[in-house]
């Protein structure tokens, strides 16, 4: 009987915290997203009105508003494209790195792995700031380019979408490498030898053996990069210019500048539905499935 009490305590303390401070806040976002906006403080009407009997006062106007305006849709699409490109480059740089680390001898492997992940521990904001220094008009990259005679005058490297991609690939790279490494590490190197013995050349070995076996790692790493990048706010704010608007920026401005709380909530809730929910459902199904198969 005592065990039960103790189990309840362990299960329900975090349960209580997360329902109160995580689930209810998400529910409030949904509630405000279907509220009628008005001028005032708070800038929306209650969804339940009691003045002339009971009345439910909700609207989908906010969703119609953001989904019919190219300003919002366009920004969301921009963010998706940005996330896609950044994920691609993270994969392009991260895959060979993870592969070669995983195929190193065990001592070197651990050292390399720590070396790759350590920058991830240092401050995110300051790593983005470092790129601001590198890409300045009189920054180190321009100095090198000028001295090599590649350009005759400093290039405008900062405050555009390319700088944003650069910053994102740099800061998110460890998130791609870790899961890739996790899967490649389990990989039997003899398979590569076997495929070579059977007459496949390097390229064929890569596409027929290595790549298919590392797909779970690629999926895991890509999700870890893709999702947060869609909502990324700091990097475009610091390195980006006015050439592209992104989801994070318009959500921020809708709330803090336009003070349109229902609109901002509708944007946020749409982000959850489109981006986060499919992955969470997939994770839960996957963990149930793997648990069932184990037992």
């Amino acid at each position: 009987m005592k065990n039960k009490l103790f189990e309840k305590y362990f299960v329900f303390s975090p349960y209580f915290w997360l329902v109160l401070f995580f689930f209810i806040p998400l529910a409030i976002i949904f509630k405000i997203s279907i509220s009628v906006s008005e001028w005032g403080m708070p800038p929306y009407q209650d969804i339940f009105l009691f003045d002339n009997g009971f009345k439910i006062n909700t609207t989908f106007e906010n969703y119609v508003y953001i989904f019919s305006d190219y300003y919002y849709i366009g920004s969301f699409v921009n963010s998706l494209i940005l996330a896609l490109i950044s994920t691609f480059f993270c994969l392009l740089i991260g895959f060979p790195l993870a592969f070669y680390i995983a195929t190193s001898n065990i001592r070197l492997r651990n050292i390399l792995l720590v070396l790759v992940v350590i920058p991830f521990w240092s401050s995110f904001l300051l790593r983005v700031y470092a790129w601001k220094i590198i890409l300045q008009n009189n920054g180190i990259l321009n100095v090198i380019l000028l001295n090599l005679g590649i350009t005759s005058e400093p290039l405008q490297l900062l405050y555009n979408q390319y700088a944003v991609i650069m910053g994102i690939v740099y800061t998110y790279l460890p998130l791609m490498i870790l899961p890739l490494y996790g899967y490649l590490n389990k990989f039997d190197l003899n398979l590569i030898e076997a495929s070579k013995d059977l007459g496949l050349n390097r390229i064929k070995t890569f596409f027929k053996v290595i790549l298919p076996l590392s797909i779970p790692g690629i999926v895991a790493g890509s999700l870890l990069v893709f999702i947060p990048v869609v909502g990324e706010f700091i990097i475009p704010e610091m390195l980006g210019g006015s050439d592209r608007l992104y989801y994070g920026k318009i959500l921020w401005e809708e709330f803090f500048v336009n003070r349109n709380w229902p609109g901002a909530s509708a944007l946020a809730f749409s982000g959850i539905i489109i981006l986060v929910l499919p992955i969470v459902i997939f994770q839960i199904l996957y963990s149930r499935w793997s648990q069932k198969n184990e037992i």
């Binding site: 349960y15 995580f22 982000g271 969470v280």
Partner: peptide, 21 residues
């Protein structure tokens, strides 16, 4: 769901939901 979603939820959405809460 409660214990894993914060890992994948963009910080911006989390921040907004906390403030409105």
């Amino acid at each position: 769901f409660l214990s894993s979603t914060p890992l994948v939820l963009p910080e911006l959405i989390l921040g907004l939901s906390m403030l409105l809460f």
